[in-house]
Design a protein around this nucleic acid. Structure first.
Lengths: 194, 194
DNA sequence: GTTAGCATGTAAGGAGTTACATGATTTT
DNA sequence: AAAATCATGTAACTCCTTACATGCTAAC
């Protein structure tokens, strides 16, 4: 029922699915591996972990006596079975918010834990979303061509270019995946490859 | 003391500085002219307007008997003197958050109400911000080249390309402004123009 | 020893979204 | 008449950010 929360939870589960970790390190990985959340405050991370534990998706493992640092107050988090199931469900999900910038980025950076058909599904879903935005912007732009001042125009044109480039990028990725798999259904895109 | 609030308030003041309007229409203009806020809910807009009125930056003018629709419950908002002053201060501001995506976009779309030096200032500030992000990403990427899987790499590379393009775009805009004005200080950029 | 980084958490406060609530006006 | 859209607002809820509070460990 949240917005970024969905992306954040997915990211947490995804990283922990690879390696159980404690909060402090988890945060660093989220920042570097996913690179997306420029800053994830502890005020967001710990409550999120807590919530995941309460829902039975994670378990806390107090790290006692790990060699050199016997009494360090570390809490290692690991996925439960339910957590793994939930993670898989979230990755494959197509619900609202599934193609948002953040959520898509998280899902793509977790592609390593996914199969080809899921990857293609996500890439195509994202492409639809971007194409929608593109269409909106174009409509908007052609409608108000004259009424908008040059700076607004310039700004929106730049946004438009970025979207077109993303579609082309997604097309390439999709082709690559389809090449790796058997043959999928042919692509339908509104943007030409140059 | 807010984040988006800063961008939203700036946008509201900027649009009202051109033409006083009532909430409903204001929202539509914010969406189409600025194009940035895909959705601005009334639950965000009206409280924001209320706050601006309370702070003496806007005045409400009950629209009575405007020809055909005598009793329509419209409230037209217009800037006060203090509001105009505040708007000008915000546009020229360099405080934290001044170069964020949203805030920058709002400021640029309001360039029509600005003088050349302010425009250059804003464009350069934005460029610095983008270059910082670029540097971070590059560091991050060279550090973890091997540890990151190919998808994460691909994703970050795409983000990097987008940032580089934005810097080039900003360089062009800055040159254009400097050409229009007298001669400004020469540019220093980390990204070559290819 | 003292600074810097590791490590976990809470509390206050702000901002925004969704859903709800109401009513006028215009179009079909 | 019914449906769409204009028009304004509120309440509950969720989430995040900032700042604070605590202590251990490593390095200089």
């Amino acid at each position: 029922m949240a917005k970024r929360s969905a992306a954040l939870e997915l990211a947490i589960l995804g990283v922990l699915a690879e390696t159980p970790q404690h909060g402090y390190e988890l945060r660093k990985r989220l920042i570097s591996v996913l690179g997306l959340f420029s800053t994830i405050s502890y005020g967001a991370l710990y409550p999120a972990l807590k919530s995941l534990v309460e829902r039975g998706l994670l378990v806390e493992q107090d790290e006692v006596g790990t060699g050199k640092y016997p009494k360090r107050a570390r809490i290692t988090y690991a996925l439960t079975e339910a957590g793994t199931a939930h993670f898989n469900a979230m990755v494959a999900d197509s619900g609202p918010g599934a193609w948002d910038d953040d959520t898509f980025a998280v899902r793509m950076s977790l592609f390593g834990q996914t199969d080809v058909s899921t990857r293609i599904h996500i890439l195509q879903g994202r492409r639809s979303r971007v194409e929608d935005r593109l269409a909106n912007l174009q409509t908007n732009l052609s409608k108000g061509r004259e009424r908008l001042d040059s700076y607004t125009l310039e700004l929106q044109q730049h946004g438009l270019d970025a979207l077109e480039r993303e579609v082309r990028w997604l097309n390439e990725l999709i082709s690559r995946e389809q090449g790796a798999a058997g043959s999928g259904n042919p692509q339908t895109s509104q943007v030409n490859k140059k």
